[in-house]
Design a protein around this nucleic acid. Structure first.
Lengths: 204, 204
DNA sequence: ACTTGACAAGATAGGCCTGTATTGTCCATT
DNA sequence: AATGGACAATACAGGCCTATCTTGTCAAGT
């Protein structure tokens, strides 16, 4: 419903961040229901009550942890996309890897529980950050020569970003290892950015 | 494990096909467990024993129905891809729509049950047909001028097909309607096929 | 500021039983 | 060839109870 988190509340307090980091790890491993506050506390090296001092209840902890993780991922995406040295292709690959490549081989049977909890407890936040991710991709495309080829093909930068995002999601669900994911993403990005690369004379 | 189904066993007997068609519909609606043989029989206008006359048990019926559906989808894909009039872009979009667009708005809470049953009861068949789908895409790419741009970009036709497949899967899971799916797929295909379209002078 | 120990309320997993629904198979019938 | 009726075996949903785990909140201690 509400999106009262300001960026300063998400990043800035190192203690809070350590707790959230630990929570992210435990939640990612065991899902939402099978994760106990005690487990998170032990993983963070904190007493169980130390958690309740900062977070009202388990649901809020989960929401804050998810938001924190999304913020960090988005931040990494933005950093990667703004690397001036690299070409667009490599930056798009790295961005999608930062966004979707993290927990590929690690998720077990609790993946469904995680997704369900994420959408039901913070569905709007998730959608918000996914939109921001696509906007970051679109922004990188707009700042590159690829934009001309997109628009001349009748594809807005937002549509191109959405397509890349879909590819990353499909590869995430179809790959068994992160390497496989990166390989597939590399092929997709090469196809997307083909107009940019040297026209490469017909016969090498 | 085994893949004893010959193509003639999958397609050719109209009565069998009618039963499988009905079974596909019911399974797609209610999943595997919540579907009863009686329901399938009624949907097919056949007695329950009529089913057991052709299929040993529920699991075999499901496996045969899934295989039948996959075979029909693949057949439609091949037909669409071989339409000589249309350009590659439109054919790729139509092919992915035939493959992944069918049951997009229709699946409810039993989707997980369906996927689980499909992979545990006929995982190898599923993988086999997915590979065939990708080969069909790759074949269409190889027979088009796009191949030159692919190979000059260091992407094999198989990799390009895999990327398209991933995009289709990602869009399938992210779209709420078939229209949305087709829109996303269109943007992706346009990006993939951009090198083919008229170079479109830089300014207009 | 954070921890420890303790607490009631509530959630959860498991066992057990029960009635119903489903499966797979028979046979007589058309 | 396919149907209908009937069948034992069994899978399944529901309720109920119990033991255990977890939650959220204390007060007291450092």
């Amino acid at each position: 419903m509400e999106m009262e988190e300001s960026a300063v509340a998400v990043i800035g307090d190192t203690r809070r961040e350590a707790l959230l980091e630990a929570a992210v790890g435990v939640f990612a491993r065991y899902g939402f229901r099978k994760t106990s506050m005690d487990e998170v506390a032990r993983a963070a090296g904190v007493s169980r009550q130390g958690l309740y001092l900062l977070f009202a209840d388990k649901e809020e902890l989960f929401r804050k942890a998810l938001t924190y993780k999304l913020a960090r991922q988005l931040s990494a995406v933005v950093v990667v996309l703004s690397r001036t040295g690299d070409g667009l292709e490599g930056r798009l690959i790295a961005a999608c890897d930062e966004w979707a490549g993290q927990f590929i081989g690690t998720m077990g049977a609790d993946a469904a529980d995680l997704m369900c909890a994420s959408t039901s407890l913070a569905g709007d936040t998730l959608a918000h950050y996914e939109a921001l991710f696509e906007r970051a991709l679109a922004h990188a495309i707009e700042a590159s020569p690829l934009l001309n080829f997109c628009t001349s093909a009748g594809v807005s930068s937002a549509d191109a970003a959405k397509a890349l995002h879909a590819t990353a999601r499909g590869l995430k669900h179809g790959s068994h290892s992160r390497q496989e994911f990166v390989r597939g993403m590399t092929a997709a990005a090469r196809m997307f950015c083909a107009p940019l690369n040297p026209p490469a004379s017909q016969k090498e």
